[in-house]
């Protein structure tokens, strides 16, 4: 197991390097000069040149790339233009919000998505299956920011049950924290529940057709035991893979949802930075998020290995 961990981390390093280079290139090779963009439409040539020198943009691209990588290795992700703050600090401040939101949504997604998928598979081709799958399909077809607005109208404005905006840190008040996040988290989870239910169902159907399920039935194992112990244990491998992917999607999705509920998370930082043309922040947040996703993938691989004896013992 230790060897596997070491191996996966070693494997992740080149991917992270590529992520770093791609994020750099994204901001440097695409049309448009960052300095001009930062300076704004009305700026004169002198101030543009000044900005260019400040940011080191006057140097050749490979040199800039080298500096970018070296700084990254030292934990320096650049400095924000609008916040007068290091990018790493700005991200660190907002990380708990986004993580809270994503993890809460994740905690909502897993039980519902899995339960719906398993139920649909077990009752395949009945009205239960159709009903669950239609719901799941609606879940993956409805834009979440739109549902978010409708939800605010209903639960915050009309019923007044939940706050419509703002964030309460966990260490201030648990109930406040939960109240501030439950609505965005549920909205965020809707798409993923549908997605996970569809994936779980198809994985369950695959497994239920396997010979070893017939073996279990021939032994006289009860239906519920077959579903949980024999079938679901085998779909767990696929569910773990999808779940990791879903965690990434939730973090991505929170970018949009944070706007609606005015949650001061990374997504809001990213969008503000794009609007303010604060390109070091854009670059830095993209990169950190990229690293986070690579890390999630490693975690998934390790859980996968733990769940599947065939991987664990090889």
């Amino acid at each position: 197991m230790l060897k596997l961990i070491a191996f996966r981390i070693a494997q992740a390093i080149p991917v992270m390097l590529v992520v770093a280079v791609l994020t750099f290139l994204l901001m440097h090779l695409l049309p448009g000069d960052p300095a001009t963009i930062i300076a704004g439409d009305q700026a004169d040539q002198a101030s543009i040149d000044q900005i260019r020198r400040d940011l080191g943009l006057d140097r050749p691209v490979p040199v800039q790339l080298w500096h970018w990588i070296v700084n990254l290795a030292q934990g320096d992700f650049g400095r924000s233009l609008m916040l007068n703050q290091a990018v790493a600090d700005a991200v660190k401040e907002r990380l708990p919000v986004t993580l809270s939101l994503a993890m809460l949504a994740f905690a909502i997604t897993l039980p519902f998505g899995i339960a719906f998928g398993v139920i649909a598979a077990v009752w395949r081709d009945t009205w239960v299956d159709s009903a669950v799958m239609i719901l799941a399909l609606v879940g993956v077809s409805v834009p979440n920011f739109w549902i978010a607005i409708l939800s605010v109208i209903l639960f915050s404005v009309t019923l007044g049950w939940l706050p419509s905006a703002g964030y309460v840190p966990l260490h201030d008040s648990f109930s406040g924290w939960l109240a501030s996040l439950i609505q965005p988290a549920v909205v965020l989870a809707l798409f993923q529940i549908g997605y996970l239910a569809r994936m779980t169902r198809s994985a369950m159907l695959d497994v239920l057709d396997q010979d070893y399920i017939r073996t279990a039935r021939a032994k006289g194992v009860a239906v519920n035991t077959i579903i949980v112990k024999h079938a679901f244990r085998n779909t767990l491998m696929q569910v773990v893979t999808v779940a990791g992917y879903i965690l990434s999607l939730l973090i991505g999705g929170s970018v949009v949802i944070e706007q609606i509920f005015a949650l001061p998370g990374i997504g809001r930082l990213l969008v503000q930075a794009i609007m303010a043309r604060d390109y070091p922040v854009v670059q830095g947040t993209m990169l950190l998020l990229g690293f986070a996703f690579v890390f999630i993938n490693i975690l998934i691989d390790l859980i996968y290995a733990y769940v599947d004896p065939r991987v664990r013992y090889d």
Partner: peptide, 20 residues
């Protein structure tokens, strides 16, 4: 099933549960 009448199958590769 399994107590009075038992059965074995053609393909031992796939007839055993891989995670147990």
């Amino acid at each position: 099933r399994g107590r009075d009448i038992a059965m074995i199958f053609q393909d031992p590769m796939h007839s055993l549960n891989p995670v147990l």
